[in-house]
Simulated assay, not measured.
Amino acid sequence: MSPKQQRGEATVEQVLDAALGVYAASGEPGLTVSAVTKASGVSPGSLYHHFGSIDGLVTALTLRWLSRLLDRLSGALQRTRTARTGIRAVVRAYLDFLREHPDAARLVHSATADRYGMEHAPQIRAAQEARLSPIAGWIQARTAAGELAPLPGPLLESLLLGPVIGVARRWLSVGDVDLDEAARTLPDRIWRSVRP
């Protein structure tokens, strides 16, 4: 990689880090070109060069953290030996991600991220394929082995992650969910819905 490319990548990382800080402090309405350039120390021209617009920046920031969440879930699954322990590992990994990165999790679960996801689902799926394939492969292998109910992959994925995403949204928005209790309770409840 050339020095120019390295500087470009460093600038992108600097802007993304600053943008998350602005989002944490001011929410989505505070994510403006002025606020992000002030926090990051880069020029507006550099922001537009790398992201095209503030919407492009928000999209890049959301996809960055979605990638990190998916990497965490995939890594948790790969270290398990059974469907049941895999479910437990995914629930714990997801909830740990929330605790460790609440601002990023709030962005990933935001209405803006939902809107973008609905409008660009095929592109997001294609861009995240490297991260999603190990999860889909794990589900397929466990289904083929008879450890999970013989349901279509997307339905199993929804049953596995839907309750965790619901808890995440509730914790992020209302704050009345005990994540330790969720980590103890959800895996067995999810297991009952997907076991053969």
Rank of each mutant, 00 (worst) to 15 (best):
T37Y: 05
S34G: 09
I139T: 02
V36F: 10
V15F: 15
R142N: 06
I190P: 01
K38S: 14
I165G: 05
V42M: 12
D188E: 14
G56T: 04
T32A: 14
A113K: 10
M1R: 08
S34F: 04
T82F: 02
P44A: 06
P154L: 08
A127C: 09
L98D: 10
H120S: 00
R88H: 12
G166W: 04
I190E: 02
W191F: 15
S40K: 02
S173K: 15
A136S: 06
W138F: 14
H120M: 01
A130P: 00
L186D: 02
W138V: 13
Q14G: 10
L95Y: 02
S53I: 09
I124F: 00
L172V: 02
P102D: 07
P187C: 11
A126M: 11
F97R: 01
D96M: 08
L186R: 00
G146A: 13
A83K: 01
P29T: 15
P122I: 11
D55G: 07
A149E: 02
Y48H: 13
V108W: 04
G153P: 13
R92T: 13
A127D: 10
F51P: 14
R125A: 08
I135N: 00
L57A: 07
V58H: 00
P122Y: 05
L69G: 05
L186I: 03
I54K: 15
Y94E: 08
E13T: 13
W138E: 01
G21A: 12
Q5Y: 08
S74Q: 03
H50A: 01
D176Y: 11
A93R: 03
S53E: 07
G137K: 07
